[in-house]
Design a protein around this nucleic acid. Sequence first.
DNA 1: ACCTGAACACCGTTCAAGT
DNA 2: ACCTGAACACCGTTCAAGT
Lengths: 209, 209
Amino acid sequence: MAPRRKPPRQPRKAPVQARSEATWVAILEATIQVLGAQGFDGLTTTRVAERAGVSVGTLYQYFPNKHALVLTVLERHVDAVATMVEEACAAHHGAPLATMVSAMCGAFIGAKLRRRDMVQALQHASAELGGDEVVRRRAQRTVEAIVAMLGTSPEIDKGRVALATSVLVPAIVGVVDTALARRADAHALRAIERELTVLGTAYLHAAAA
Amino acid sequence: MAPRRKPPRQPRKAPVQARSEATWVAILEATIQVLGAQGFDGLTTTRVAERAGVSVGTLYQYFPNKHALVLTVLERHVDAVATMVEEACAAHHGAPLATMVSAMCGAFIGAKLRRRDMVQALQHASAELGGDEVVRRRAQRTVEAIVAMLGTSPEIDKGRVALATSVLVPAIVGVVDTALARRADAHALRAIERELTVLGTAYLHAAAA
DNA sequence: ACCTGAACACCGTTCAAGT
DNA sequence: ACCTGAACACCGTTCAAGT
């Protein structure tokens, strides 16, 4: 947990050979499995290495520390979710405002649901050092995709799209994440998706006034 | 971090004598100080005990483990914030809807700002085991206070107040927490408070339709 | 070029012994 | 009734030695 005596080393380079590429993947997959099975507190470098079929020393050739292990898993998951939302945005340029909002909420909820086990496993990790930084960095591009989509709607005041989006996104994320943390089922999530569509549409209309 | 061999013991009883009450407070205050100075990863039972002027053994007479230490601090902070929001709600029964929403957002942001250092220190801890459970439990009562306030408004459909509130609260929390995590200054937070008032009012009006 | 695993420096937690 | 601190079982991380 806390850094030890010596200053942290450079992050390991990405693997260059086929064998090591496979090792890298194996370690990441082992991380996901251990995370899912034992939870964040049960995540041990020894355990991950064991599950990946390598020694701890090898693990440390690919990842500078335990944090990096989890952060990489988080990074890939966040990227998957963000990409799906961005695709939904791209597909709804010029649509009615309510459809836009519904599409982006639906894509977000759908993406999270598809990987629900990982969402669960990463819940505790997200707030760890650097976790929200990872989310923040990737979210930026998604916000731009949403702004671009909303910009095609005649129902919104163009001058307020950026601000409104930067408020609406954390609002939606907050509602969905809270619901998932409470283990809401698919039915409840559909109701939430409808509410969020109402909320988003009403806010964006109001922001124009 | 991970539980050790033996099963966890009963949580220690609250102190019964004046001296031990003082010790209890000293340990909690030491936790806050270490958390603020060294961050969550630097939080060590030895360090906390040292700062509180007691031995580790004593610390474990008052708190069953390190988690409980942080959780207790979190619990008290969450309670302080919740109480302020509930007071704002009680004070605005019968007010215009926009005033209600503005009051509750203002109270929430104000409470968080007043203890900004603690918000910062607890950021990482909140997602740890049991962290969101603490928040959830206390939030329930606050939601009821908000529902009671909104129920006095003729501008909202009574049948939808409960659902709308349960969506609106995590939306507001999500937006404010994200802003605080990004170290938004007081000026930015005021802008966010205005946006949230627009968002909340528009949503509650729309929920009536 | 990649892997191993014993060794090191911690940390959380306990418990026999003290006052 | 409360406190101490050495002792124990772990865990993250490194590095000399292997293939």
